[in-house]
Design a protein around this nucleic acid. Structure first.
Length: 729
DNA sequence: CTTGAGAGGTTTTTT
DNA sequence: ACCTCTCAAG
């Protein structure tokens, strides 16, 4: 190892620990790097690339680096260009979807797509599915469109086309038919959804040996980040690209796999080990982030999981502060505690932006926001609608899509009557019927019907408008085209009239800005793999808008408290972290118990949450909280029990009997009429089989009374009082 | 075409 | 509680 380093300026490898160094300088072979939280994963990944280039084992041209998010891809390129003096332009780095998009653009003929194919985002896909179902006369009560979408996507993510799906009963067969028709419709309209991007690309590589070999020959080194989050299809795609000679450098952490619900297969790590003859897994277990109390807690929690590759984080930092646990009597009390604590921390000099407030589900942010707002503490909520998903932006993009290609039915339907121009449901139906008869796109049908009209109202007006846009946009720069579309469409005028339209106008302006930025960045990159002139800059911009939903909010840099779900916190770190709502049913979430290994995923989620903290960690829960408009009584999360008591400092006395607190001043808004019974909601009870629990609900009358009891680990149970022997505590 | 009442559904999320 | 969607009335 030392010998190899002679050719390398030490600066690159300086400061790496033994394991990191081993990973960075591995010879040409496939490798699995098990990188714990805070173990310097991104550093290893980027240094590996820099090292490969600097020691001239690879040129940037021969490297493919895959991530899940655009953010991670950007981060990687930024760090890399800081490390290396040379231009890394020739390197392919991006998300799975971004890279597949690039390949499909270059080889669109081979996969039978138009050069300007458009990408459907989730909302577009859903409306496309609804459309298909309408044509097919499918009952959307029996086949909820969202469910159909989930089905189609998970099929595709398994690498399956409709014909390959098994369907044993009539319901499944109908699903399969919808799947098939939906794909046909997409093909007709020249659009692809996210999963299709991957599947189509996979098929491109598997059906065309020469193309496959070309890329296999080119990408000798493939690096994959967050490998535990790959789905089946992504794994197959990687395998195909790697062929038999190339090596994959996979970095991941099975303990941080929290996306099984969207198709991630942790099992890919084991398969990878086997399929690529990985001889030894390099484990990065030294954590540079947290003090040991926090790490010990995280380790203690995660050891309760069965299926692990095995890994134990350690740190050379001291024990640090104990983990603070607070028990609120309700959600408001919990929030008030958090706010007080943050105020104190802030007074002592902790930056607000270095404090994170985490929760399991978005619904929990409301009460926290309320208290923060009252206290006058600035905060920022992550998640929610992103820039390119905003209605006004999507409208503008739909007009741009129609400029690029009128045959985009999804885009047409979105704006044919927005701003309203007198095209109602009836005229639309006629148009759709016409298109069906003529077997063409709605746009074609509309053109056939009206010929050349004048801009104005009605279908004539719409056709004329789009034609005018298409003509006038010729020769314009991208920002000018965007400006043209927002103006000519009448969107701007429409929002000027709207009393709450100011923000929307601002977003339209922001879209023009985004176009300017994109234009400056992309200029000079308009030649594709085969040296052909690539598609128009407009089509590129539209693809960009679909693939990158845009930065969350404009005021990102502000000094503010950070609020987000635990999922959103993955990959981030903060000096102080609050994890709130640690109650059975919330975290772990009730819904998780319906999924296979759901609890283990919840536990990994807890593990991720805990390992975000550098110095100080607060865990809190409430005895009762408002949820879905109902007062719910919970019991402390089992994850709290999984943390050794010696790591914990209880901030208030925690009673062992959940009911032994004063009822909150405000009683439940509409209390159920209390029948004559010894059972009150909130009453602690014991059951011979299920152990201790809390009564959370009841139904029926005196003769036939059933109570619902939260038994924590045993879950929620309905018990008939007549039969179940319950003891009050 | 716009508006408002009513129903239904609420884990997590990227592309 | 609150948000989104649908459908009927204006």
């Amino acid at each position: 190892m030392q010998l190899m380093m002679n050719s390398t300026p030490t600066s690159l490898l300086d400061g790496l620990n033994d394991k990191q160094l081993e990973a960075v300088t591995l010879p040409h072979q496939s490798a699995l790097i098990l990188a714990g939280a805070g173990s310097g994963k991104t550093r290893v990944l980027t240094t590996r690339i820099a090292w490969l280039i600097q020691t001239q084992q690879a040129s940037p041209h021969g490297i493919l680096s895959v991530t899940f998010t655009n953010k991670a891809a950007k981060e990687m390129l930024t760090r890399l260009s800081a490390m290396l003096p040379i231009n890394v332009r020739g390197m392919w780095a991006g998300t799975f979807h971004g890279l597949c998009n690039r390949l499909l653009r270059a080889h669109h003929r081979e996969v039978d797509l138009p050069a300007t194919f458009q990408i459907l985002d989730t909302a577009d896909q859903l409306s496309a599915i609804k459309r298909v179902m309408k044509v097919m006369n499918v009952d959307d009560e029996k086949f909820p469109p969202k469910q159909v979408m989930g089905y189609i996507n998970s099929c595709k993510e398994e690498g399956l086309r409709a014909y390959a799906v098994e369907a044993y009963d009539s319901h499944a067969q109908r699903m399969r038919e919808i799947f098939e028709e939906y794909d046909k419709q997409c093909q007709r309209e020249g659009v692809v959804d996210f999963a299709e991007l991957l599947l189509r690309c996979y098929e491109l590589l598997s059906h065309n040996a020469n193309i496959r070999e070309h890329y296999q020959h080119r990408f000798k080194y493939i690096l994959v980040d967050e490998f535990q989050d790959t789905n089946r299809l992504q794994y197959l795609w990687l395998k195909l690209l790697a062929g038999s000679d190339n090596c994959i450098f996979a970095v991941g952490d099975d303990d941080q796999s929290i996306y099984a619900f969207r198709g991630a297969r942790v099992g890919n790590m084991r398969d990878f080990e086997h399929d690529f003859n990985v001889e030894n897994i390099v484990k990065l277990e030294q954590n540079y982030r947290s003090h040991s109390n926090i790490l010990d807690a995280a380790n203690a929690i995660i050891t309760h999981n069965r299926n692990r590759l095995g890994k134990n984080l350690w740190t050379s930092a001291g024990k640090g502060e104990p983990i603070r646990v607070y028990e609120g009597y309700n959600d408001k009390d919990e929030a008030a505690f958090i706010v007080d604590e943050i105020k104190a921390l802030h007074k002592e000099g902790t930056e607000l932006s270095n404090i994170a407030l985490l929760y399991r589900s978005n619904a929990q942010s409301r009460i926290l926001e309320h208290e923060l707002f009252s206290a006058g503490l600035p905060y920022r909520v992550y998640g929610g609608l992103r820039f390119f998903e905003r209605a006004e932006v999507k409208h503008a993009l739909a007009y741009l899509r129609l400029i690029a290609s009128g045959d985009d039915d999804t885009a047409l339907l979105r704006v044919i009557n927005f701003p309203t121009r007198g095209i109602g449901a009836r005229s639309l139906e006629q148009l759709q019927e016409l298109a069906r008869q003529q077997d063409c796109s709605l746009w074609q049908a509309a053109c056939n019907k009206v010929g050349a009209g004048k801009p104005g109202r009605g279908l004539d007006g719409f056709v004329a408008l789009i034609k005018q846009m298409q003509e006038e946009s010729i020769g314009l720069t991208l920002p000018e085209q965007v400006e043209l579309a927002t103006r000519l469409s009448g969107l701007r005028d429409h929002y000027v009239m709207d009393k709450e339209g100011e923000d929307r106008i601002a977003n339209l302006d922001e879209l023009v800005n985004a176009a300017i930025a994109f234009n400056n960045q992309e200029i000079g990159m308009q030649v594709d793999e085969n040296g052909e002139v690539a598609m128009s800059i407009l089509a590129q911009f539209l693809a960009h808008a679909s693939l990158e939903s845009g930065e969350h909010q404009a005021d990102a840099g502000r000094e503010a408290l950070q609020l987000m779900t635990v999922h959103a916190s993955k990959g981030l770190e903060f000096n102080t972290v609050f994890i709130s709502g640690l109650e059975e049913g919330l975290f772990p979430h009730d819904q998780s118990s319906f999924e296979a290994n759901g609890l283990e995923e919840e536990r990994r989620l807890m593990y991720v949450a805990v390992t975000r903290a550098r110095q100080r960690l607060y865990l809190s829960f409430a005895q009762s909280r408002m949820l879905h408009g109902q007062l719910r009584y919970g019991i402390p999360s089992r994850f709290l029990d999984e943390i050794p008591e010696e790591l914990i400092k209880r901030l208030n006395s925690v009673s062992n009997k959940p009911q032994s607190y004063q009822q909150p001043a405000a009683a439940p808004a509409v209390p159920k009429p209390q029948a004559n019974l010894p059972w009150k909601i909130g009453q602690a009870v014991a059951h011979s089989k299920f152990g201790q629990g809390v009564v959370v609900n009841y139904e029926g009358n005196a003769n036939d009374l059933r109570v619902q009891v939260n038994f924590g680990k045993e879950g929620l149970k309905w018990l008939a009082l007549e039969y179940a022997k319950l003891e009050t505590l």
